[in-house]
Design a protein around this nucleic acid. Structure first.
Lengths: 340, 340
DNA sequence: GAGGTTAGTGTAAGCGCTTACATATCACTG
DNA sequence: CAGTGATATGTAAGCGCTTACACTAACCTC
């Protein structure tokens, strides 16, 4: 059994290139400060040894990582994928790297992930939604890690957010649905325990109902975990309630697609027998058949602006400012007026 | 303007708790070695200061990170999400953390990501597919970072893989399709340039055709980038070729769903006018209408086994062994016999 | 040709942590 | 009660890197 060859370090490179470690460091990080010939020798040594700088050591010496952490509730089902992609692309143009973690919609896991990303030296964090344990915000302050909230917008929260008003968006949609004559409504909501967007969307419907003079009790409410199958099960439950709903709101498109499928399986016509409304406007919404009526979220714009804001904060010290984006209603084929 | 409060370090905790840094370190990492009373004092100091250990410094001192890197081609569309989730879950039970990066199906980006994860101290790497620049494998050897390949299986490759035989799986499916009477075939393939799974699937179809006495020329071939819309466009192209194909294979379910949609838009009946076959069996496949006939990939099992293998390698020095899993055919509603 | 730049390089301290080793206590044991 | 072992803690070196500062040599400038 041969002994492991040691992993090459800066010093090994320096020895091989016959220069000091300082020069190697400079050759790598600011090539302009080094004579061309020296640079060449260093590069050759790097290549020959298969040298890779130790990120941890570097981070320790310069005291920043050029890394920004993002924690999203889920990686499945692409709800956050598009926005994150834009976020990452934007960061990249500014020289930052994104580190990503997912919390499975659990507050305790999210907290763990926050601590882990901070430990890994994230220079800043992107978080989804405002609501979380105040202790963790205190911790972030102690660690001096700035936080930007997205997928939500609340100018009054103590952390800046770049996003849209979930409640207002859903309220607009609900108002339209009510205007079309629907009176018996249902909502299949994602779990609201640690998801302030879900509660806001719920509140939006209630608010629209209130404006239209409907009673909160007129809304059948089913709460379920995330997933297509879960949406299907919830739909079956909702459609069985009395009086039977003529319009079923879903907290997100994934649940809506599940609902749509189950409706088909039950022989219930959409939108003739029942209307189904989603939220998010992910790609799935267009592919579904019939194509889903939903609330369009400006994923890419949100991600891009968030990346820009954070890069500018870190790079130029420009403070984070709340930015409100508009969600819009997308009417496709799953919503129809209620004939009376 | 107040000056930034310094970020608390081990030493700050030590001072506050009136012990040495060594004791704090022990109190945190092996509480059993520290007197209960001391431990309490340390914990209080940690909480009070909002202390978080510096991961980089720790990694440097212990020379490992308990972190495993995974690089997947894409985060959109959830193809890899389920497998990765299982991978992560398994790693977690062994005390490892997963770091994830996506390469957008680009070889150069993947190489960058590999270097970045290695720099960050990944103790091992999970990679999709065997094929990549030999230099990068050399680099990984120099850095002494073990690699496990997945989503593919090739016992003859010089790196161990845990996955399935893409060619054989697609060949099985193609044989069935041919047996059903289809003679005019088309394949909408993902880009094969840096995607050995895509080429293997292509090869599988050709192989089945060969067995059945068909000519390779009888397969219309369209290559496209990843995405639902891309699948739709490619389908329109494929269906216009002469002789008109009666069965269209797709390199993955995402392309297949796009094809399905375009077929509907063009008024082409599936499976009466044309059969459409996917690959992967992601959730989307069941939701599509008609439900997609596809090749089921054992995502979860693959992820779990990969995680286990890596954890055992790192923890107990158990060498990685290639493991072949079986992909299976799932017949749903988009494939029908060809009436002659 | 003395004085002043500038470019290129080296020396060494220090980033925050772990851990081998040394030391100090204390409770037994025979 | 000297000797032993267990338990708890401290001291200090070292992990791989960056960078302030110091130094040298070459090149101007007047």
């Amino acid at each position: 059994m041969t002994t492991q060859p040691a992993i090459p370090t800066l010093e090994d490179v320096a020895t091989l290139a016959e220069v000091s470690t300082a020069t190697v460091s400079r050759a790598i990080n600011s090539p302009g400060k080094v004579a061309p010939d020296t640079r060449r020798r260093v590069n050759e040594a790097v290549a020959k040894l298969g040298y890779s700088p130790n990120f941890g050591a570097r981070a320790m010496a310069v005291r920043r990582t050029m890394t920004i952490g993002a924690i999203i509730p889920t990686m499945e089902n692409a709800i956050f994928a598009r926005g994150l992609q834009a976020f990452q692309d934007e960061l990249r143009t500014h020289g930052y790297t994104m580190l990503i973690a997912s919390s499975a919609y659990r507050a305790d896991t999210e907290e763990e992930q926050i601590r882990s990303l901070v430990a890994r030296g994230a220079d800043a964090l992107l978080l989804i939604g405002h609501h979380r344990n105040p202790d963790i915000y205190k911790f972030l302050d102690a660690q001096n890690v700035p936080v930007l909230v997205t997928w939500a917008y609340d100018p009054d929260a103590d952390r800046p957010s770049i996003g849209f008003d979930n409640k207002a968006a859903m309220q607009d949609m609900a108002a339209e649905v009510i205007k079309m004559g629907h009176r018996n409504l249902a909502l299949i909501s994602a779990e609201t325990a640690s998801n302030d967007r879900a509660s806001a969307r719920h509140a939006g419907i209630l608010s629209a109902m209130h404006e239209a003079g409907l009673q909160p009790d007129d809304l059948h409410y089913v709460e379920t975990t995330y997933g297509i199958e879960e949406g299907a099960v919830a739909f079956e439950q909702a459609i069985g309630m009395m009086p039977r709903p003529t319009a079923v709101f879903c907290g997100n498109d994934v649940l809506a697609v599940g609902a749509l499928r189950r409706a088909r399986e039950l022989g219930i016509q959409v939108p003739d027998d029942v209307s189904i409304i989603g939220f998010d406007d992910i790609e799935l919404a267009q592919v579904a058949h019939p194509a889903l009526t939903t609330v369009h979220v400006p994923h890419r714009e949100m991600g891009r602006l968030a990346g820009l804001a954070l890069a500018q904060l870190l790079g130029k010290g420009i403070a984070l400012k709340p930015v409100e984006l508009r969600a819009s209603l997308v009417f496709r084929d799953t919503l129809a007026p209620r004939e009376n």
